[in-house]
Design a protein around this nucleic acid. Structure first.
Length: 275
DNA sequence: AGCCAGGGTCTGC
DNA sequence: GCAGACCATGGC
């Protein structure tokens, strides 16, 4: 893929396995909106952007090359060869079916704290409500960076908050888990920088020291927050798929890319339910 | 009204 | 180590 600068826009061409709408709305990120004009609006690392996808190009509006390289290129995981990975994991016939129907899903490389916090909120919850809670979290405690845009609050910024302070979020029993994560990160008991360098088994253990972080939330944090594409979150939908199609576990062809296979299967299975 | 949602904790065996 | 109650909230 190539990018050029035009005025204040970045235009991406030679698109390879990248469907922006699918990436943003397949259940891995919770803060994006589709505007009436078809543009996707969101905030990452305190930067708001509008993205338009056309036939053969994707336009990042009103940004800079620096932000494109620092933020949007890693966020959409543009340096990874998904073409090749999809071909490999599609040796399995069901993944092949899912990947044909939803070609262009990539794993978004989100901020690790945002991913951790978001997936703590996700437990025993549904996607629209998760988005609502996170939206209220950002509005209440993030920085206002535009008319209706707020950054995701850092854990440093949330340092002195109590469970009662989170009441307006209507996060229910998850509030105490968020506070526990905030405290463990601020005290240094757990370090996201350290987790990033750990082998995955150790990283899992470390994340699960936080109350409200079990296997599934840890796996989501590793996959979406740390770019560990071998992480394999199993939620109710993936559990269904495993029972229906893969009683003996994932096929060999997914090895090393389990998280990407998971994303295709999750979205495929979840959408099939509504037909 | 009851069930479900990108689950986890706690208790009791 | 595993099953089952319980956890808040909102949509259907």
């Amino acid at each position: 893929m190539k990018h050029i600068i035009k005025n204040k826009d970045i235009i991406l061409s030679d698109i390879s396995c990248l469907d922006v709408e699918l990436c943003l709305f397949c259940g891995q990120a919770f803060r994006w909106q589709k505007k009436e004009n078809g543009a996707f609006h969101g905030v990452v690392k305190g930067r708001a952007v509008d993205i338009i996808q056309k036939e053969n190009e994707i336009i990042f509006l009103n940004t800079s090359e620096k932000d494109f390289l620092d933020i949007w290129l890693p966020y959409f995981d543009l340096e990874r060869n998904y073409e090749e990975i999809c071909k490999k994991i599609s040796e399995d016939k069901y993944i092949n079916e899912a990947a044909k129907e939803y070609y262009g899903i990539r794993i978004l490389r989100q901020d690790s704290w945002e991913a951790l916090c978001s997936f703590i909120i996700s437990q025993n919850n549904n996607i629209p409500r998760i988005s609502g809670i996170i939206g209220r979290l950002c509005e209440a405690f993030g920085d206002r960076i535009g008319e209706n845009d707020y950054s995701f609050p850092t854990y440093e910024k949330m340092k002195d908050l109590t469970v009662e302070d989170l009441a307006p979020l209507r996060a229910g029993f998850r509030s105490k888990y968020i506070i526990d994560a905030v405290q463990k990160l601020n005290s240094g008991e757990i370090s996201l920088n350290e987790i990033e360098k750990m082998p995955i088994e150790k990283a899992r253990e470390e994340l699960m020291k936080i109350k409200g972080v079990g296997a599934k939330v840890a796996e989501c944090t590793l996959l979406y927050g740390f770019g560990r594409i071998e992480a394999f979150p199993v939620d109710v939908w993936v559990k269904r798929i495993m029972a229906e199609l893969y009683e003996d576990g994932l096929p060999e062809c997914t090895k090393g890319n389990e998280g990407i296979a998971q994303q295709y299967l999750f979205h495929w299975r979840r959408n099939k339910e509504n037909k």
